[in-house]
Amino acid sequence: MSLPAFIAALDLLAADAPARIGAAVDLEAWTEVRNALVGRQSGRLTDIMAGLGALAKEDRREAGQRANSVKVAIEEALAHRHAELAAAAPKSGSSFDLSMPARGRWKGAVHPVSLVIDEVIEIFRELGFTIALGPEAEHAWYNFGALNFPDDHPAMDLHDTLYLGDGQVLRTHTSPVQVRTLQQYPPPVRVLAPGNVYRRDFFDPSHAPMFAQIEGLVVDEGVSFADLKATLSHFARRFFGSTTQTRFRPSYFPFTEPSAEMDVQCGVCSGSGCSVCKQSGWIEILGAGMVHPAVLEAAGLDSERFTGWAFGMGPARTAISRHGIPDIRILYDADVRFLDQFTR
């Protein structure tokens, strides 16, 4: 090391030491600052002084004098600050109250609807499902035509649609991902497609113009309705508890045949009927069915060789009943007092 470098290091220390000492807000901080500046183990002055021996002999005297004057100035400032802090410190002294709270850190949270989606995905992942995604602004053919919706038919009334242009819609369900996936990848296909879907439904306590949906699709040779039932019942037992009872009711979706809806026995009344299940004893969980041959054909598959099943569920409904949320709009507001209830 050269003398100029040695002196530059001293100057730098002398320049910022007063501000550091002044910034010590209590005796504890003062001790830290002192150790950092002039501590014997790792103080900056000690580090600089260690370089004294490496200087040329004729420079050592000047270097030593400079170092000493810096040291004296720093120690004076430290003593002055110590006196100030000691005067301000409570008389009880140095005892350390361990019952006082830890330094806080904000806790983040995953949205309650995402939590449901996560759980659903986790269960189906164990069964070999992978994740497929598709666009929200969609061709009407993928949203309706390929899914066997008859043109200008009352079945369309079940999907009040937001249109973007001629033949362009905001998808009304995640089912278009079925067709996209089947066109892109050959069977066997086992996918889940979570995503947002849109309906021309005005915001009210139980309806929203956009909501999350999770689609499931299995296509292979020899896939049957019994597989659908077994897989979805397994899911229900994993999701709601190992003793969960399920029932399958006939339903109608243009893109599945046979079509069914799966209910689980109401957890509040155990099936005897209550206000939660509207006296029916059952809670509707999802719609499902065997993939309609017309859908397989729309995706260019041989509907005689391949069969499949699919389901769709709305995680928001599950989140609402699980957490006792009275109004679906709360899920969209992003009120931090609500979100903070889901910190982990």
């Binding site: 070999g128 497929a132 897989t231 397994h234 029932r247 046979p258 079509s259 069914a260």
Partner: peptide, 30 residues
């Protein structure tokens, strides 16, 4: 398949078997 649905629902969906089978892994990457 429409007739198959008639058969299934008239017998009752609840009467169909409910046993998980082994499956082939799918071809679709995440």
């Amino acid at each position: 398949v429409d007739l198959i649905e008639e058969v299934a629902r008239l017998r009752g969906f609840d009467r169909l078997p409910d046993v998980l089978k082994g499956v082939r892994p799918g071809t679709v990457p995440d």
